[in-house]
Computed example of a mutant assay.
Amino acid sequence: MMQAPIDPMLDQMLDAALPHVAFDGWSQATFDAAVADAGLDPAHARAICPRGAVDLAIAYHRRGDALMVAALGAADLRDMRFRDKVAHAIRLRLQAITDKEAVRRGTTLFALPHMAPDGAKLIWGTADAIWTALGDTSLDVNWYTKRLTLSGVYSAVVLFWLGDDSLDAQATDAFIDRRIDDVMRFEKLKADARANPLTRPFATALGRLTAHVKAPARMQDPDLPGVWRNP
């Protein structure tokens, strides 16, 4: 997924907002305090963040994605199994979080019915960033299923991590491994279905139904991790 660089003024507002998020959440009060603390013109700040603190919460999530991608690029993954690469990417994404309470408040914000589409898009974007950084070359329906599955895994990991008070988040590490193992078992079941003479016809029929599904063309808009190119 293409990550657009954060506007320096947006970055400045985000840094100024974080100390207030623990007390006021991603709210109008936090946005106003961030603008004042950063010494910015309110009209200009509103032009950068039309939805106020919501846009700051989105920027905070995307900053974490960018830090994770950079850390993955610098990591030596050559001796890792692929499942371990995915688990490592998830751990790096958690390590990129500088303020646990900001994530907790963001989870509450994006759980609201009218904010759920934004929250789903952010989680999808994280999954897409991980797969892309790991060199995924899928061009068919697998492009979608990989990201859908990882979105579910990452969402579950974040919720578990928010309540984890174990030493050095050891319980979260174990939880990540269990979720990745679940995914691997699911992939094995799919492979077995294609190999088993009894289930092969159903797997083949499903393959034919999804054969026309193609991965979306890569575009430059960071808001759209998966889109179709106009003909």
Score class of each variant (00 low, 15 high):
A75V: 02
R81H: 10
A96W: 04
L72W: 02
H88D: 02
M68R: 05
A75S: 15
L40D: 05
D76T: 10
D55Y: 11
D55I: 14
Q95I: 01
R83I: 00
R78Q: 12
R91P: 02
G64F: 13
A96C: 02
Q28F: 10
A38M: 12
R63A: 08
G52D: 10
L94P: 08
A66T: 10
R78G: 12
D65G: 09
L40N: 01
A70D: 11
V86I: 12
T30E: 03
P42D: 15
G52A: 11
Q12A: 09
Q95T: 03
M80K: 14
R51G: 14
D41F: 06
V21W: 01
F23G: 15
I90Q: 01
D41Q: 12
S27I: 11
D15Y: 03
H20N: 08
G64M: 09
H20K: 05
L92T: 02
F82A: 03
I48C: 07
T30S: 14
A87V: 00
F23Y: 08
R91I: 07
G39K: 09
A75M: 09
H20E: 12
Q95M: 06
P50R: 14
A47Q: 15
R63N: 14
R46C: 05
R63H: 12
P50H: 04
A16P: 03
L56E: 09
V69M: 04
D15S: 11
V54K: 11
A22E: 15
D55T: 11
V35R: 07
R93Q: 15
A34P: 03
D15T: 12
D84S: 00
G73V: 11
D76M: 15
L40K: 06
I58P: 04
V86Y: 00
D84G: 00
C49E: 06
F31Q: 09
D32E: 14
R78L: 08
A59K: 00
Y60Q: 14
D15F: 01
Q12T: 13
G39H: 06
